[in-house]
Each structure stands twice: as structure tokens, then as C-alpha cells.
Write a protein that binds this DNA or RNA. Structure first.
Lengths: 243, 243
DNA sequence: CTCATACTCCACAGATCTATGGATAACAGA
DNA sequence: TCTGTTATCCATAGATCTGTGGAGTATGAG
């Protein structure tokens, strides 16, 4: 059921753009797209992450595919979806930015849930680059490991929020921590920072998340060669002292 | 009928963003928003421009207002709508960019209608700035006068496409013309350039349109102090020799 | 070949959206 | 106050969208 090539004039142009609009008219589709901007995932994983039945998730994904915003890759019996293009992530970012700029409710929700910028200034990308080079800070990627593997700030350490408590002792108390997550609408990094500060550690959030980092043209590393969140090889690894 | 403040958690966040999505799910609303990114207009004018009945246009505008993407100003018996924010225009631009990047149909339509980049490279903003400073080119704003009045490139001359033929003689044949319009999805400038070239004149399109110019942080002039498109004060004015 | 897994497709009922004509409201001018 | 203009609101019928369970399909393992 491919889209036929439109015959008419200008009107069709906006009709085509509305195909994209159709994707972001449903909250769950925005959520799915947001997830896909972090890393590719199977339908099952997406359904679980967004709290959807499999058939429903699949249907949503078809809508996104018809708008060409996502593409698929088959691996055995499993189908992996991914954002089709960097431009797609830029669009999702723009949507989030617009939401924060225009909808007071968005800020209210963020604040209510706890993303309150509790007095803490965020670290700018420029500042992080400078301070990371001189080894003054540990950069913590608090997203799930799959997302870290799909792309992360070079030199960042993967430590998913769920494992933070367990590995607190491995963090060098002498170094400041800079945590980042999916972006300004994501609460992982703010929560991590709150936890760390409760223990008296120096910690701040990075402005925005990985997608924005990538969109800024900064380098992104892939793979999970570093110490993962799930302590695989015992606990003798010490975070924040790499080289 | 204001929106109630959401109580729940993360889910509401995407629900809020979907309010914005709701605006761009309908082709006519995208068209209206696109128009409003150029200049404010009355409901009547918008309805006419988009080919809608008054009541239908009003309904669409209400949707856009509930999403806080547009604001209104009353003047006598007439209500003027405008884009609420520069961020709104950025979002519309991002939508268009995504459409051109992902939907082959969009490019096809543009090409079919005649926006074919007929071999002609477009002028970059940087190049225009440089060449305009040395007075080598005439910058032509071929959008309707209202849009020119609402904002234009400083030094640009307003000459709506519909009046181009009539005022061809006023253009200095020795200067190259750079025409611009609403943006990459707009056909006014390409048509103007085609017309000029058919007369053997040197003419090129500017890359993108005024919204992108503004978003690039470049200066924008308002008002219509210059020679308008409708020859008001006779024809003795000669275009392209301003100082 | 058979079975299990991971998806996609389908039919359908309930909800939501759209366009439209006419009623209502706000305002300017006389 | 009365009238004409401009815009919003309302009821409604027809179209489209959503979620769901179950049937159908592709792939891999045994």
C-alpha cells in the first residue's frame, strides 16, 4: 500500500507534510520516536518501553514507517526499528524545544516530577569539552546500556541510573560528576545528580542530551568497550580514573 | 475552555507535545502556520489565502491557539493572528526540512510545479551579504507587500511576483538580480527568476527565504518605506539604484 | 516437518476529527 | 439605538483514527 505520487499542485505539498504531522499527533508515537532517536530497538522492546500491546505498537510503527521517519532491519525472527535519519532527530528535538518554549505545562510537569533545576546550573557542552580534556570531571552516561552502546560522548562512562546506587562506591569522590541522558525532557540525569548530591558529591547535569550533542556536530563513540552498567567482571574497576 | 494542568507523570509530557502535533496533522493548518510565519493576517485574509470558508478557517485557528502556537490582536472589528514566537517558525522550518529530506514526493512536487533548480545554483546568504554590500546586485522580495512590510532583508526591494512583468523595465539590466520568497517550499522566487531569465537578465534565487534569514540571526527590516509593488507614486522610480 | 517466536495484518466497535450553515457576539459608524 | 462587518460558537452528519484479539506470515531451532 504505497503512497501514490500526487498529481495536483501546491495543496499536495502540505498534504505530504501532514504525513509527518500524523506521526506526532499521538503521544505514544512521539514517545516511540524519542526512544528511536537514542537507539534502535525491536518491536517488543519498544512496546514494553512505551507500555503498549505488541499489535498496537506495531500499528504505530507502521504509521511512522509510512511517513518514512523510521526504517527497519531484520535479524532472525526479530525486526529492529531505527530513526531513518539524523534529520528526524532534529525534528523531534525541535518539537521538544517548541513544547518547552510555548507550553507552560511542559515545564510544570518537568518541575513537578523532579527535573527542577534545583539551583544547579547545567554544564554547557563547551565547558564539558574543556574540563574533560584536563581530566577534572567524570562524564556519566546514565541511560540504559543499549543506548550507550548505540552512541555516547567519547570518554563517557556508562552507568545506568538503576545501577547508580550499587556502584556509588566506585566513584572517585574527588572528581566532579557531569551526568547526561536523553535530552531536556528526560529525567534520568537530573535524578542521578540528585542522588549523588544527597551523598555530598559534586555533580551537575549536562545541558541537553546525546541527540543535541550529536546535532551540534560533536564526536560520538559507539560500542560498549568500557565498563558497563551491569557489573560483569567484578567490582575491581574504578570509575573516573581512566587513563 | 482552558487546558487543565495535568496531574500524572511522564505520559502527560508526550500528551502535551501531541497538542503541537495536532496542529500539523492537517494540511491546511500547516499552510496557515506557514503563512503566519511570514506576516500576521486577519481571519478573512487567511481563509482566502488558504481557500477555506471563514468558519472553517476560524476553527483551525482555534486549534492552533489552543496549542499556543499563535496569538491574536484585535483591531476594530477584525482579529489579526500571528505566530506566537520565533520558535514556532523554527518548528515549521524543521518540518519542511524533514519533508524535503525524507519524502521524495515533496521534491517531486516542487520539481513538477516548476521549482526545478534549472541548472541555477542558489545564492548563499553569505555571498549575498558580500555582494550586496558592494552594490553588485539588486535584492528582490517577490512576496506580497504585506509580508514585505512585516519583515524583509534590509535593502531589499519589494516587487511582488504579480507586478514583476509590469515593472520589468524599471530594473537595471546591468545588475544581477537575487530574488527571495518564503522559503524552500515557496515558488515565488523561482518563478520570478524564470521570468527574468527569459528576458535575458542575470537572476538567481537566494537559498531559502526570509524565515531562514531571520533564524540565521541576520538583521530584518520592517515597514514599507521603499517603493512598493503597486506603483503608487508613478513610474519614475528606478529599481536597483538605491544609493 | 513441526513448533515456537516475533511481527504484521485484519475486522470492528468506540472515540475523535472535519466541514458546514446558521446563530451569536464584538465592534464601528451613523 | 440600529445596521453592517468580522469573527466565534454550535449542532450535526460523515469521515478518520485507535485499541484489541485473533488470524496469518516469516524465521530459526530441533
Amino acid at each position: 500500500m504505497e503512497y501514490e505520487i500526487p498529481a495536483g499542485g501546491r495543496a499536495d505539498l502540505y498534504e505530504q507534510l501532514a504525513r509527518i504531522g500524523k506521526v506526532v499527533v499521538h503521544p505514544k508515537r512521539i514517545e516511540l520516536l524519542d526512544l528511536l532517536c537514542q537507539a534502535e530497538r525491536s518491536v517488543e522492546a519498544l512496546a514494553a518501553a512505551a507500555g503498549l500491546k505488541l499489535s498496537t505498537a506495531s500499528a504505530h510503527l507502521q504509521v511512522m514507517r509510512q511517513a518514512r521517519l523510521v526504517e527497519t532491519r531484520r535479524e532472525g525472527t526479530r525486526v529492529y526499528y531505527r530513526a531513518a535519519d539524523e534529520e528526524v532527530c532534529r525534528f523531534v528535538t525541535a518539537l521538544g524545544d517548541l513544547g518547552r518554549a510555548r507550553l507552560a505545562e511542559v515545564d510544570q510537569i518537568l518541575r513537578a516530577i523532579g527535573a527542577g533545576r534545583d539551583g544547579a546550573e547545567r554544564v554547557t557542552r563547551a565547558e564539558l569539552l574543556e574540563r574533560a580534556r584536563s581530566g577534572e570531571v567524570v562524564v556519566l552516561d546514565v541511560r540504559p546500556v543499549e543506548e550507550y552502546a548505540a552512541g555516547h560522548i567519547p570518554g563517557a562512562v556508562s552507568l545506568p541510573l538503576e545501577h547508580l546506587e550499587a556502584r556509588l562506591g566506585d566513584l572517585d569522590p574527588g572528581l566532579e560528576v557531569v551526568a547526561y541522558c536523553r535530552g531536556p525532557l528526560c529525567l534520568l540525569a537530573p535524578e542521578a545528580v540528585a542522588t549523588l548530591r544527597a551523598r555530598g558529591m559534586q555533580a551537575r547535569c549536562l545541558e541537553d542530551g546525546l541527540p543535541e550533542w550529536r546535532q551540534a556536530g560533536l564526536p560520538v563513540a559507539t560500542g560498549t568497550d568500557t565498563l558497563g552498567g551491569a557489573p560483569a567482571g567484578g567490582h575491581e574497576t574504578r570509575l573516573g580514573r581512566r587513563r
